[in-house]
Design a protein around this nucleic acid. Structure first.
Lengths: 245, 245
DNA sequence: CGCTGCGTGTCATCTGATTGTCATGTCGCT
DNA sequence: AGCGACATGACAATCAGATGACACGCAGCG
């Protein structure tokens, strides 16, 4: 195995080396941000189109096949949520990455509710965007939007319903997002940093135990009432959702 | 407790799980800030070089591979934005964290525009710098993890799970780091100094038997319960992890 | 308007786990 | 035997995480 640098270079160039570049559509009304994004994505080896408002974006998406969409929530004409729902209604299955303004907690939930596959809170680091994009493109179409299952715990991204051992569980927005993050990475160690930058904006203070507190709340709902505990603490590092006892 | 100390310790823990220190290049003309940064980053477990102006920094970056750059915008010779663009034009893809004294939103966009991955406004808290750095470096690390195997011993960097002969083994953070270090250098003689400088601060007292103690603890968990012993003592020198019986 | 309930994030406190040191026992080499 | 070098168990200080309580903001409602 190569050293860190080698792997980095390799990974970053992956798309450029591919026969066909992955095609992306960026729907973002802020021109400056749109152009920055476009250039960065092109540098990263993608083929990129941009659209500046909802209707235009939707038309683009319907006119040509894209491998993924990057979609701002706040758009003139027709907002990102509506575009997303509309595209899904028309059976378009490509992964959609939503961009949401900071402090819009509701948005995050609605975003996932409307059929988006992931969301990113502004401001974000470009590398984070690229990483999430890689993750989305890597994921097989068949496993996106499918029912997530870990042990006797089930989560349906489409309906937002969660249940364990047949018992329905009600989760607040944050808790739902946290659980979904866990379930999309079963058995994987999630550091506090990773969780924090997924659920809060990446430049969140850093000196806070929000993550601990939310994990505690999640445990109270999905673990406390049951014998087999699913959320494991990895001391000094983070947490992990176990698939097996 | 002082903030700086707390951050240092925390960061060291974070990196304890890694075999090799991450290499950073700091390009900053203010000597005092540069030296404070360098020391703090070293304390945090990174290997750090510094450059005092644009051209020098660029030369450094081109000469050797770094895992990340910390780049001041205001630099003599050639400013940070130009350095950044230039490096990107030369296909260097490592994450770049920009620093600036100006606090206009404009700069953020310009910074990202020139190819930076993240942006930090002076004055900043050291803890924030470290947090963002971790976020930038995390990508490369998390997407790398291949399963490490030595004999019937297996270690998965992604989940931090360790098992021998199918039996799961629970390791504390330090022990995990030690084992990972061993497993990334199988059959290789590791001196006490090497181990000490990888897992503890580079200039650890020297008059301590921490290494012996931790090797003992590791043995208790991965060797004691099994017939074939994997950790070998090389008298007068150090230890070695054997792949063969 | 004020009351109430919910979700969110912060804080202080508590507790077992982890850490590094030390004293002592054991082994291997000359 | 004697000298290091290493192994080992015990120990106190420290720390990371768990946990409960609190304060704030916001939506719904009388």
């Amino acid at each position: 195995m190569g050293d860190a640098m080698g792997d980095t270079m390799q990974e970053r160039r992956t798309h450029a080396g591919r026969g066909e570049a992955m095609r992306l559509l960026v729907i973002e009304d802020n021109r400056r941000l749109a152009s920055v994004l476009k250039q960065s994505l092109i540098d990263a080896g993608y083929a990129v189109d941009t659209a500046a408002d909802g209707p235009e974006g939707e038309a683009f998406a319907l006119a040509a096949p894209y491998d993924a969409l990057i979609l701002d929530i706040l758009l003139p004409g027709k907002d990102g949520l509506a575009v997303c729902r509309s595209l899904r209604a028309q059976r378009l299955k490509m992964p959609i990455l939503m961009l949401t303004a900071r402090d819009a907690v509701e948005d995050r939930v609605k975003g996932l509710d409307s059929g988006a596959d992931d969301y990113l809170v502004k401001p974000f680091a470009l590398s984070e965007l690229l990483a999430r994009l890689r993750a989305l493109l890597r994921r097989d179409a068949s496993e996106r939007g499918a029912l997530l299952t870990v042990g006797d715990l089930r989560l349906d991204p489409a309906s937002h319903l969660v249940e364990r051992a047949g018992q329905p569980i009600e989760l607040s927005a944050r808790l739902y997002a946290l659980l979904e993050y866990f379930m999309r990475h079963p058995n994987q160690l999630l550091t506090r940093d990773m969780i924090e930058s997924h659920l809060w904006s990446y430049d969140y203070g850093g000196v806070s135990n929000v993550v601990d507190v939310y994990v505690r709340r999640l445990r109270r709902q999905i673990d406390d009432p049951f014998a087999a505990k699913l959320i494991e603490t990895v001391r000094g590092v983070g947490y992990r959702l176990r698939t097996i006892g």
